[in-house]
Design a protein around this nucleic acid. Structure first.
Lengths: 213, 213
DNA sequence: GAATTAATTGAACGTTCGTTTTATTAATCT
DNA sequence: AGATTAATAAAACGAACGTTCAATTAATTC
């Protein structure tokens, strides 16, 4: 046998990407075999090499596009406003929404970094650092403006990101909490954590009631 | 060749455990080969099977002992006091200290769960749930006593644990911050996050200055 | 409709994997 | 000192791995 009727490179490649994200998220990159991935797509293992020269190329492509998507999403969501509270709220909302929507891809991007070559690892980390820097800037601006009360913006940024990203570990869509409820809670926790005192049309300090749905 | 002079089962087993934690943390469980591990210990791969019947048994042993250590540490650190703020502070301090001290083992226990059999996974998760429940209880007691202002104790507990455990991702001993400084910061962030208002000999609300070193 | 390109199969390659078996030597016990 | 037990080495097993190659068929182009 050879080329199958109705076969289409674009569709196959998309199917490979999708299946790979799911399998790597579930089994881990090392544990997923190319044969397993091919079976999931409904193709022989050799066919995968038409789209990705190596297994690591596949992983890297998934990660790079995930990070590019994250940066793009933030660029689109970033408010024009200079108010640090508004900016922080937008960052949190975008982060939670993006990560819940792309749980599996996030899992891959966060857990499989060690399987990348040094050069490619550097590339991914550069994007991640750029994204985290946006949060640090917001926290610093807010602290300088007196809107936040933070003693170490770098540490606080890491703590917030870990807290927010952690949502993908326990959150399951369609269970007890809705995405909107989770987002509201994280927003509230974030504002308390940074000691936000000035808010857009809200009594200070920035409390639970201010963001409850 | 066969038994080597000065060989000692207990010492070898300990060396295997130590080397395994380091290698799995660095390379991942799947990526670490038994030959690699044996080489790190200075022994042939076959010798490992005198101490652990399978590779998965080795992983499970490391994880189980790590979780047992965590529960033991908390039992020892748990204050007799009924004051929720004191209990929460003890939980945070113990958690941070334990996880910084055992960064590699924590990495293994958190990242390699999917390599366990269903039964063993359940066992580990049961211990983890028990540990997390301790925090949820503190948060609930504190909320009922009016010491905290929390709208969802389950969600808050998960957020706090993710935030605290995340310290192992970015923290490197001997760099900019000391363990004491990091602990103090996380304690401060935690108390703000839960809206702690009553404290042991501290002005309310529980702020940064109250726990700074 | 012939030639070309796109997409895939099936088989194979060399390597590495976790693990087992057997033999051998060091340490301990009687 | 001899017998027994503890700890290892060396070699081998079959299975699975990522990847390559040649052949083959479907779709497209001329």
């Amino acid at each position: 046998m050879a080329r199958t009727t109705g076969s289409d490179g674009e569709r196959t490649e998309a199917a490979v990407r999708e299946a790979a994200v799911g399998l790597i998220a579930r089994l881990g990159y090392e544990a997923m075999s190319m044969r397993q991935l091919a079976a999931e797509v409904g193709v022989q293992a050799a066919a995968l090499y038409r789209y990705f020269p190596t297994k690591e190329d596949l992983l890297f492509t998934l990660m790079r596009e995930h990070m590019e998507g994250l940066l793009k999403a933030w660029e689109a969501a970033r408010p024009a406003s200079a108010d640090p509270v508004t900016r922080l709220a937008a960052y949190v909302e975008n982060h939670i929404a993006f990560h819940i929507e792309r749980r599996h891809a996030t899992h891959v991007s966060n857990m499989e970094l060690r399987s990348l070559s040094h050069e490619r690892l550097t590339q991914i980390l550069k994007m991640r650092t750029a994204y985290e820097k946006e949060l640090r800037t917001i926290l610093r601006d807010g602290t300088e403006a007196g809107a936040f009360e933070i003693d170490d913006t770098g540490l606080t940024a890491m703590a917030l990101i870990q807290m927010m990203t952690g949502v993908i570990v326990w959150f399951r869509p369609g269970e007890r909490l809705s995405v909107a409820e989770v987002t509201a809670s994280y927003l509230s926790m974030t504002m308390r954590l940074v000691g936000a005192t000035i808010s857009h049309g809200t009594a200070r300090p920035y409390g639970r009631a201010a963001v409850a749905l």
